[in-house]
Design a protein around this nucleic acid. Structure first.
Lengths: 191, 191
DNA sequence: CCTTATCTGTCTATCGATAGATAGATTACG
DNA sequence: CGTAATCTATCTATCGATAGACAGATAAGG
């Protein structure tokens, strides 16, 4: 008897894998551990994801897709740039609040040299997607600025938020994240 | 014939280990690889650093000590807060310029859950040391602000710079770091 | 309807590589 | 001689990956 469909199993593996990566990084991903968590054997995980690189790339791609969908929804129902940025910073905050996790692509950036090429590609796309969205939000506030300046500002915001998450995580202190975000706002880095 | 003294050997191991961690993280540290790089056997590395945690903690402690010494020197010969911050951001930039390396404690923060307790302790100290120094520099510009506000601002700067380094590294593009720092300056986050 | 063939998903068992760590022999310095 | 440093050799554990078998579902041909 097959308890789950192929799609269900893939989803279960990806869910478990994502949690592991956000907590302990790509290197900590193990086919055996993953298999145990979802109740199958490691060989069966290989059936769904032939190589570890395939799994990592699928994770990052999904992560970007889900993020993009959520952000698009935010912008569509927007109550203004400040509200958007509140929601945005809240995303990264909730990762920390949820067992001190990190942005999946942020933690993968730190492991860059151990990533297969197909995973790196997806990590790049995540950053580009975020910067693209932030640029749109910024354009609502500074309609006069050039596209290039907006993009530069957006990248700075993205980097600053990733950094706040990284440092707060390292210190196991979510208050550090909150205070950093507050300072970013005070200085006007974040609108 | 003993080619090097015990101290020399410890230094050689730590130098090689530091380069590896800054490039590929704590998890990528291997006693065998390390031994090969310095020309001894892995068992001999264990002689100098009984466990991997010992080595990691020693690395982070040294990293903090050297950083503190350099920063103290900066402040002593200071030509003003802006000059100090220029030198400070240059430290993190040079890591990227040097084979896309990262701050040792930044990369370790990402691997937090895989770190032995003694290593985590040292990672915390590095952040505290940096924030302490930045607080002093900030106090040169905003003598009116409270110690608490200064410290909060300092932490935000530290986090933003770590983030710029992380994202620039992830994208293998040092220009991202430079532009982020410029934006931090434009907004006044960095004096 | 029935049988034969194919496909799907998982299993067991195992591979070679590598990890950190240790015991005990050996070498070299003072 | 004694001790400091390195060696050889090995252990256990885990890694990603693969081969081959098997059960159950599905599809095709008669």
């Amino acid at each position: 008897m097959m308890a789950r469909t192929k799609t269900d199993m893939r989803e279960a593996v990806m869910t478990a894998a994502r949690a592991t990566v956000q907590s302990r990084g790509y290197n900590a991903l193990s086919f055996r551990e993953l298999a145990k968590e979802v109740g199958i054997k490691s060989a069966s995980v290989h059936y769904h994801f032939p190589t570890k690189g395939d799994l990592g790339a699928a994770l990052a791609r999904r992560y970007t897709e889900e993020g993009a969908a959520y952000l698009a929804e935010l912008l569509a129902t927007s109550e203004g740039p400040t509200w958007c940025m509140d929601r945005y910073t809240e995303i990264f905050r909730s990762a920390l609040a949820n067992d001190n996790r990190m942005c999946l692509c942020g933690i993968m950036s730190a492991e860059l040299d151990d990533l297969p090429a197909e995973v790196r590609t997806e990590v790049d796309k995540f950053a580009a997607m975020n910067v693209g969205w932030l640029t749109k939000v910024l354009s609502l506030t500074k309609s006069s600025a050039s596209e290039q300046d907006l993009k530069e500002h957006a990248m700075a915001i993205f980097a600053a938020i990733e950094g706040a998450q990284l440092v707060a995580r390292g210190c196991r202190n979510i208050g550090i994240y909150d205070r950093a975000i507050r300072a970013y706002r005070t200085t006007g880095l974040i609108p």
